[in-house]
Design a protein around this nucleic acid. Structure first.
Lengths: 328, 328
DNA sequence: CTGTTAGCGCTTTCAT
DNA sequence: ATGAAAGCGCTAACAG
């Protein structure tokens, strides 16, 4: 079945150059021979060899996507819209999962480069000078989301700091005067890329700093569930618990409820991300929604624009909004 | 930075053949020249061009994965283990999403073939003679999961029919004498590939056929929530609702509860798939768990075995088990 | 041991 | 309008 352009040439009694002109309808060929070649090609189900084409053309119409986490629904949702946009523009995607392993991430990036991808979209777990150097010398356009690397590498996400700030104000606006912020450990700072959790943390701290009447504390140890419970039990006044992500919020929610504490009657909880499983959880969690589809679509579109030689902004913020539901 | 083997040859004053021998440490070269070439290669950060290699070797170390649905957690979980196994064996993956669009599915398969993937793993939404012919003439190994195409195409999944049979017996064993089965519409039979829902449905029917004392009915209309509610309200006796998937079960659960019906006090619900979000839902849903990681891992492993020329079974069933929790 | 040659399948420039 | 030839970067068969 598989027939090459060379064979087509023989079949038609012409040369491969002519076949090429017909196939990619380029000038310099008579209507007659063109039609004949096209006909023979169709009869034999000719399909060009993509590898050979790529080798000579110097591009592969392929994007590499490196994700550190796909268990997190955010990233699978993001991938769906990314893939759709890429396909619309004729690109295929190598999807690789770094699983938060920095060595693996680096290895994957090298392999993608070996495979001559036209661009890379990346939720990085690495950071620092070495990593930046690796990306810089890669010579292909790169875009990031879910963690920022540096101002040199375009980044598409939400404004996490302001989102959390808004959340704090939202909570204060509800009358709460005591607030706990639950965050992943930040001690990996400098070792691993934790840009997003850091920004969110900063947002919390900054918001609180302008509201001295608001008592606040941060929980980020590995045994955070027990810590939160203790704080809740010891508090004289009703607490609000703001979590840096819905996953944390859900875990806290479950844990507190299993210890007989009712939400939102005895304590308020708020998450961030608006992951789709919230629909199935009661009480409905108050959270921050951001258009993750939009992040996927735009990062694909911008990466491709960059590949085409256009320049793209170093930072793109997608809108977010607070979804006020029943847990606060 | 990018240096080719030809350039290395010049730099070392040898020919590309020799460079090749050094790089792929093959016999027929002196230790001395080998070391020299390797050293120069390292200094210049030489990396072989994967496209060129693929073109000449005739394989790409790439697998195509076609998924019709990645919103369903099952498939993202499956992908994670598939990708891990593939990577372990040096394969990269093109991930494409058909979104249950048959034309798109076909187009994607063609493109993957053009790109010379070594094998394809597929959760098919198409079926029938034309589709089988397409797969047959593709000339690359194919494996399926999440819907079966035919006995010619290896299939890795659970034994859905027996799983649902077991579920029915489990429910009967709990003392229920009335049971509703909630299924997606089966009217697309013949048009679209609905192998799995069909098998599950058959399992339900077969199980009930040997238990005449068990009153049963099937709900599969588009307004199934209202239908289920009506049945529940009209029933004199406590009903069990068996759903063909956890997603349905969750929707039914929410809907009934929003209409003041308590689970499991007034009605029992059971799902299937054990998707990970069940951890966050109360009451804890009784369901059927199957090792989806194992499906991912084994389908990758088997596909690669097949690529290597080994023969693989036409059907592989992965274990399942009933998870008895609080909703029944 | 090393060099030479041919070729994977396609595109592209330069003649004719 | 068509043919001839070179080349993308690598591998492989055959000489020497």
């Amino acid at each position: 079945m598989k027939v090459t352009s060379k064979q087509l040439a023989e079949l038609c009694g012409v040369t491969r150059g002519t076949v090429d002109r017909a196939l990619n309808n380029r000038p310099g060929i008579s209507q007659e021979t063109r039609e004949k070649i096209l006909k023979v090609a169709a009869e034999h189900g000719y399909r060009p060899d993509f590898l050979a084409q790529s080798l000579v053309k110097g591009h592969t119409k392929t994007l590499g996507v490196v994700l550190f986490d796909i268990h997190n629904r955010i990233f699978s949702q993001l991938f769906i819209s990314f893939e759709a946009e890429a396909r619309r523009q004729g690109y295929f995607i190598y999807l690789v999962l770094s699983s938060k392993d920095q060595e693996l991430e680096t290895e994957y990036i090298h392999s993608l480069l070996d495979r001559k991808v036209d661009g890379i979209a990346l939720s990085p777990i690495s950071m620092g000078a070495n990593f930046e150097a690796l990306l810089a010398k890669s010579r292909v356009p790169i875009i990031t989301f879910g963690n920022r690397v540096s101002s040199k590498i375009p980044y598409v996400w939400i404004d996490d700091k302001n989102a959390i700030k808004d959340a704090v104000h939202h909570i204060a606006g509800k009358g709460y005067r005591r607030i706990i912020y639950v965050s992943p450990p930040l001690r990996f700072k400098g070792k691993s890329n934790i840009y997003v959790p850091e920004q969110r943390y900063k947002g919390f701290v900054e918001a609180c700093s302008v509201m001295p009447e608001l008592w606040h504390t941060v929980v980020s140890d590995s045994d955070y569930l027990a810590s939160v419970l203790r704080l809740v039990q010891q508090s004289q006044e009703k607490l609000a618990i703001l979590c840096s992500s819905d996953i944390y919020a859900l875990d806290v929610l479950r844990y507190l409820e299993s210890h007989g504490i009712r939400v939102p009657e005895q304590v308020g909880i708020m998450g961030c991300d608006n992951i789709d499983i919230l629909n199935y959880v009661t009480p409905h969690l108050t959270t921050i929604d951001f258009q993750v589809d939009e992040i996927g679509r735009r990062s694909a579109a911008m990466l491709i624009d960059r590949i085409k030689g256009e320049s793209i902004p170093s930072r793109t913020h997608v809108p977010y909004s607070i979804i006020d539901r029943d847990s606060l």
